[in-house]
Design a protein around this nucleic acid. Structure first.
Lengths: 343, 343
DNA sequence: AAGGTTTGTTAAAACGTTTGCACAGCTCAA
DNA sequence: TTGAGCTGTGCAAACGTTTTAACAAACCTT
């Protein structure tokens, strides 16, 4: 293990000088710098990250806190794309990513405080906000640099957020169906305690209200972000006497399940029922039929989150604490059918 | 920031004693331990990870090196599932995961040596081996604790590996088709420089040879691990006068593309052509038709890799340097059709 | 030519732990 | 009673950096 002292000795300078060469201090003469650099290359010097962190009190590392039921998340392309956005930026900015997950409900705070209070990371990225999220509240109290991908209520002023306008996105999806003449529109939602479910439900509600359409609560089904959820929802939903002619589905993976459920029950999409979904994962357009989905800018969501967090850490001025990534409905076959009006 | 000295002072003991309480040193009396623990809880003490790492020369962190074209990888459910396996074990074993990716071809070694020589991590997990992988060779030379998910040639004795028997897996897939009476079987492969492509190609070759079937090299198409690859392969493959009646596809995501391509060209699966694929991602059974796929134990692959690496780091005896995770062909509709014999 | 500023470098303290060694007090066998 | 062994604790060095303060030498400015 070659240390800064070894380099200093070999170059005939002090360790401080070597340190300053590494960190490009302006007061170092070109000759000294060149000599030291040459010797570092010759001897294969690599600064010890821990020693540096200890004294500089910065780790150049960000943590991603994965939400508890990580199974769901990982099943989703959505997560991979998000991670890719985060990683692309953080690598460019010179930050490493630490991936962490709690083992249980209660040790969530414990896990994050080990990292935060143990000065293991410089900032935290949170995924998937719950309606009353203790983790968010904790980080807000600690005033530790954090960014949430999702939404939090206004009482957490220290937390940056990057999010979609999910109310509007769901409104747009519903409006698309309404404009095609649908009057009975259902909603296959995700877990009720996630803000994303809440917001999309709200947009759905508003669109229906605006169009003067009835919202039959029996047309609203809550589930997980899993295929099974969508699959199971169908057997229930399609048995209803006055069943919907169109469905809004919270996520593409769930929509795959919905599609499969409908196929097995003998229904045809979009002829019997139309479907619009969210997240626009790569496979959506390869489904049979291709699924209409809302592109929420997943990569951008991750990239922006990392970007804002790094800015916050580096003390740059924050123009806006909350950033909205635009969405766009991609219409495909699954919603291309005009329903037959009832007598 | 409350340090070990603060606790020592408050408890009326020396810092060494506090340190020993934290690390459960047997020579500490129960009374002292209890008192120190109480005070730590009261004052909210959290050990500084960097200081600890500096002196103990261990970081309790593993790195995952992502292969260069990370886009492909992230598009794949496969990666998420693998990550879940790794993370589940590493969390249990008390290790954090550092996710890193190189920005270019050349700085791969640089990126990993910063982590390795900078003593930032205790071990490295490598994904997706190339045929002559400089990264693997580097880690082998450094004799740094590493595990490869995939295969390497025998000249890297210091690298642990976890892998499937991909030759056998492809053999089994081909055999399945052959036993159904197929005589013209094609192969949609991945990038040629990945060992996984190489091995599956080999199994495919062996099975055909064993059955006395001709391998038409025009039936073999190389591409990426992307849907487009599968999609594009079809327009080419199906125009051939003596086109195959069955296809083996390197990955489910590619198979989705294949399926879509065939649908657009007006072919029906499995009636016109049968398909068998690999990796068995969750959406495979939701495709139309459900795709026959080889379950390669993705989660297990990741879990085992982490397990072996941690054992190596902790100096436990290694029984076998190379572990094979069993595979299993899941037959679904996409390969359930007996071809009509010619003449 | 004197004083002030700039430039290039060093010495030493600090960061918060762990751990080898020393040692005091105790127990117990001979 | 002696001393060997054990138990519980403290001292101080070490880990490899960064950074403040100090200072010598060189450069201006008048």
């Amino acid at each position: 293990m070659v240390t800064i002292k070894d380099i200093a000795k070999a170059a005939g300078v002090s360790p401080s000088t070597v340190s300053r060469v590494v960190s490009k201090h302006p007061r170092i003469s070109k000759e000294t710098a060149d000599k030291v650099k040459r010797i570092m290359a010759e001897m294969g010097y690599h600064p010890n990250a821990m020693a540096k962190s200890l004294v500089s009190k910065t780790t150049n590392t960000l943590a991603i806190m994965l939400p508890r039921p990580a199974e769901e998340l990982f099943q989703d392309f959505f997560f991979g794309e998000l991670l890719r956005g985060i990683l692309t930026h953080s690598t460019r900015a010179g930050y490493d990513m630490l991936l962490t997950t709690a083992t249980g409900e209660h040790d969530e705070i414990e896990t994050v405080s080990r990292l935060v209070l143990g000065r293991r990371v410089d900032g935290v990225i949170l995924l998937s906000a719950r309606v009353k999220d203790p983790l968010i509240q904790y980080l807000n109290e600690q005033q530790f640099p954090s960014v949430l991908i999702g939404r939090t209520d206004d009482s957490n002023p220290h937390i940056l957020t990057v999010n979609n306008n999910n109310v509007q996105a769901a409104y747009d999806a519903a409006q698309h169906l309404i404009s095609q003449g649908h009057e009975r529109i259902g909603f296959v939602s995700g877990p009720r305690n996630l803000t994303v479910s809440f917001d999309r439900m709200e947009g759905y509600r508003q669109a229906l209200a605006n169009a003067g359409l009835k919202l039959n609560t029996e047309w609203v089904v809550e589930g997980e972000f899993l295929q099974e959820s969508g699959f199971r929802a169908m057997s229930f939903l399609m048995e209803m006497p006055d069943r919907p002619t169109a469905l809004i589905v919270i996520d593409d993976v769930v929509a795959f399940g919905v599609l499969r459920g409908l196929t097995e029950l003998g229904y045809s999409v979009p002829d019997d029922i139309c479907i619009v979904s969210f997240n626009n994962i790569a496979l959506s357009e390869l489904a049979t039929p291709p699924i209409s989905s809302t592109d929420i800018g997943t990569y951008q969501l991750g990239y922006t989150a990392s970007q804002k967090l790094v800015r916050l850490i580096q003390g740059e001025p924050i123009h806006q604490f909350s950033t909205i990534i635009p969405h766009r409905l991609i219409v495909r076959e699954s919603s291309m059918h005009v329903p037959v009006k009832k007598g």
